[in-house]
Amino acid sequence: MFIVTQKEKKVGMLIITLFAIAILTTTLFSGCTENKPAGTTATLSLGGSTTVQPIADACAQAFMVLHSNITVQVYGGGSGVGIKGVAGGTYDIGDASREAKASDLTDIQGVTLSDLVAHKIALDGIAIIVSKEIYNAGVTNISKTQLKGIYNRTITNWQTLGGPNEAIFVVGRDTSSGTYTSINDMLGLNQSTQILDVARSENAQVKAAVAGQNNGIGYVGLGFVDANTPAVKLNGISPSISTVTDNTYPLSRSLYMYTKGPASGVEQMFIDFVLSTDGQKIVEQEEFVPLPK
């Protein structure tokens, strides 16, 4: 009935084989990772706070060199995403720059706060950075009250702080970030009293926004301080590894990795690695503060 030419047959066969190959390879590959016994090949997924992400990225790379049979995937997202992800099973380890709250788990049934185990992996200070021009003009030290004044807009000009006659350009983080919450807690502000000019969703963006102006102030993790965006002293104490470790710097906090239940298997191996001397060295390289011994 149908006359099918030789050429058409060939094309048809080719398409069918291509599809078959595509399907086979995908199933084969996915089969590979699932079927082989743990220990020979394993995947570990981390996700959450963008503050913790540089540590997680660097540790993952070093960890994979040590254990070539383990693949570590690092996702961003934010503290909330990390905690939700580990509770819901999306990630094996959730990174957070703050402690987990009950409100993080409202969507997830059957997991309570007590099911999550926090592993403190590093310390971090939130540095207050200003534009180079402001720092050079003499604003090198502000008090916590003044800082609060800047962020709730009772202080709007650098002159009040002994700087040039320039409006203060206030940069901060988006309302759902861990760092934003930390700042509110530490300064006694809340959502309606922390008034920003610009909100950015990552530490790097905050630094970029402050560096791009001659009148900016912002808060970032300790690792993001450099000559372009110098950190001011807070109550006379400059943010550094030593002042954060002995808790004299007013804006110190801990960084966590969360697991659901006690860490086991590959999770334990990874967290042990982060807490080991090598891991803490990476923490220091990424310009965070290692845990005191």
Binding site: T26, T43, A208
Partner: peptide, 27 residues
């Protein structure tokens, strides 16, 4: 992300990479 071995793994992509680099400019 490492090279993916199955379709159930995440991946890098040029547009997302550019987004991230754009956020990092200045930092």
């Amino acid at each position: 992300a490492p090279f993916p071995t199955s379709v159930f793994e995440p991946i890098q992509s040029l547009s997302f990479h550019l987004l991230q680099l754009t956020k990092y400019i200045g930092a």
